[in-house]
Amino acid sequence: MTGDRRGDDAGGGLREAVSRRSSPWQALAAVAWSFFGVRRSVDHERDVTQLNPLHVIVAGLVAAALFVAALVLLVQWVVA
């Protein structure tokens, strides 16, 4: 079975994602820029190659939770 290559790269993408070197602060900055809606293509390409996807997911969830909490507090302040 020399033509069967399904098992050759099993888990390679996960190892690549885990071995990327970036700080959670860089992921938070990338998520903040994406919330704002402005991102240079050069910075986007750098983020794709350097950021750990797990950091981006966690930063996105934290930023979304903070955004929702801020909106709830703003509405409570306006209504009260």
Rank of each mutant, 00 (worst) to 15 (best):
M1A: 10
G3E: 13
D4Q: 12
R5L: 12
R6L: 15
A10Q: 09
G11K: 00
G11N: 05
G13E: 15
G13H: 01
L14M: 09
L14V: 08
L14Y: 05
E16D: 12
E16V: 00
E16G: 03
S19K: 10
Q26N: 06
Q26M: 08
A29E: 07
A30R: 00
A30W: 01
A30N: 02
V31Y: 00
W33Q: 08
S34V: 01
F36M: 13
R39L: 07
S41I: 05
S41N: 12
V42G: 04
R46I: 09
R46C: 05
D47H: 05
V48C: 05
V48G: 03
T49Q: 14
Q50M: 12
L51Y: 02
L51R: 00
N52Y: 02
N52C: 11
N52D: 14
H55V: 01
V56E: 01
I57F: 14
V58N: 02
A59D: 03
A59R: 02
L61V: 08
V62H: 01
V62D: 04
A63C: 12
L66V: 10
F67M: 05
A70Y: 06
V72L: 13
L73N: 11
L73S: 14
L74Y: 09
V75L: 13
V75A: 14
Q76R: 15
Q76E: 11
W77F: 09
V78I: 10
V78D: 06
V78M: 13
V78R: 11
V79W: 10
A80V: 06
